[in-house]
Amino acid sequence: MTHLLREEIEKTILLTDEEFDLVLAAFKKKQFKKHQFIVQEQEPVLYEHFILSGLAKAAHLDKEGKEHITQFAFEGSWITDPHAYHSIVPASLNIDCLEDTETLALSREDRAYLYKRVPKMAVFFSEKTIADYITLQKRTLCLISTNAKERYESLLLRHPTLLQRVSKTHIASYLGLSRETLSRLLTT
């Protein structure tokens, strides 16, 4: 399964086997059960997680207790509360598993160690940060400039198997829709 991490990294930089061994040694393998939290609001965030298997979601609960999903993380993707992780402040997101999930977890300290031992990992993480920022910008623009049907179709184009893995309630929350609006979209 660790080949997924190497494939992800080598989309940006090439690593020797020795360098990849150093990278892999910096990560801790973590196992989570379905419905188990990886991160909980108001708690410290010690790790950034690379998903090896399973599915997780990041969400914020508003004052009325309504959940607003900000991200789904599938195999081969990363998830954390970036503000809490990098700024060492309590989490503002909950990240929980929608399926049994296995991750590779990287602490801030181990990331800093990697920068010293494998300096080109700084390039990887810099490029990853830029890509994440672009993804966030696209998602924000989509939310403010497209209608519900366009948002739904765009999501399915990017993640065609999502409907088989995630409840309609979760999809509606991610799209900024009510469950009823999503149901109407699915019947038209």
Rank of each mutant, 00 (worst) to 15 (best):
G54D: 11
I134G: 06
L136P: 00
V89L: 15
L52S: 04
V23T: 01
I144T: 14
P82G: 07
P44C: 08
V89H: 07
A26E: 00
I134W: 03
D17Q: 12
R151M: 03
K168L: 13
K29P: 07
H49G: 05
L182W: 02
E10T: 10
V123A: 10
L177M: 15
D110R: 11
L156W: 04
D100M: 02
L175S: 07
E43H: 14
I95V: 15
R111V: 00
S126D: 01
H170A: 15
S183P: 00
P90D: 08
S87D: 07
A58D: 02
E127A: 15
A26W: 02
R117F: 01
A59S: 15
I95K: 05
Y174L: 12
K116M: 06
E150H: 11
E43R: 13
G176R: 08
H159F: 15
E10I: 06
Y85V: 05
P90I: 06
I69Q: 02
L157A: 14
G54S: 07
E7T: 10
I171A: 10
L104M: 14
L106C: 10
E102W: 00
E102K: 12
D62C: 08
T169L: 14
R111D: 05
G65H: 08
V45N: 06
E99K: 14
K149I: 09
A122W: 01
T12C: 09
Q40H: 11
M1P: 08
S167H: 12
F125M: 05
A122Y: 00
V39P: 02
E41D: 10
N94R: 05
